[in-house]
Design a protein around this nucleic acid. Structure first.
Length: 159
DNA sequence: TTAGGTAGTCTCG
DNA sequence: CGAGACTACCTAA
């Protein structure tokens, strides 16, 4: 739980409200906001870039993000998140496949995905289990899994 | 379908 | 620090 996070923008999207946190003009994290949150105007240019690219993505699933990002985490988490960014839109990998590349284990990869601070842009939704959909934003069922399914369907992946 | 194995992180003490 | 618990898992039987 982050105490009083300060959002540079809160935008509405097909998967609900997204809260955007910047640090020094660099994308730091994206939060899924409750429905009753009030949208909040963009305050600066760098944030406008993030908003614009997100809107591109929701319009056209194949959009490739190009943004300065600073996702903070352990070295292992960074390595996993780097692998995620190399999965093209419309494709998926399994936790085991990522683990093999990094010489680690599937559960460890799942742990790292769960900690991804920048969902959507860092596409943790493109990682699934060998048999089943896996989880999303800390849930294996519930509203976040609905978001994961939506994102994959948006990219043309049959679940 | 389940039991056992696995890697990384977190939480106590 | 160290032991033990907790995962968005996987494989063999």
């Amino acid at each position: 739980m982050k105490p009083n996070p300060h959002y540079q923008a809160i935008i509405s999207s097909p998967i609900g409200l997204l809260g955007i946190i910047m640090e020094e003009g660099i994308l730091h994290s994206i939060d899924f906001m409750p429905d009753n949150t009030a949208p909040q105007a963009t305050v600066d240019n760098a944030t406008a870039q993030v908003v614009s690219q997100l809107q591109h993505y929701f319009r056209q699933a194949g959009w490739m993000f190009s943004l300065p990002m600073l996702p903070v985490g352990t070295p292992f988490q960074q390595a996993v998140w780097q692998q995620l960014q190399q999965i093209p839109a419309g494709e998926v990998r399994t936790y085991g496949e990522i683990a093999k590349i990094l010489g680690s284990g599937p559960r460890a990869v799942g742990n790292a995905c769960r900690k991804n601070p920048i969902p959507v842009v860092i596409p943790c939704h493109r990682v699934v289990a060998s048999s089943g959909p896996g989880g999303y934003a800390g849930q294996t069922q519930g509203p976040n899994m609905t978001i994961k399914s939506w994102l994959l369907a948006h990219e043309g992946v049959i679940i």
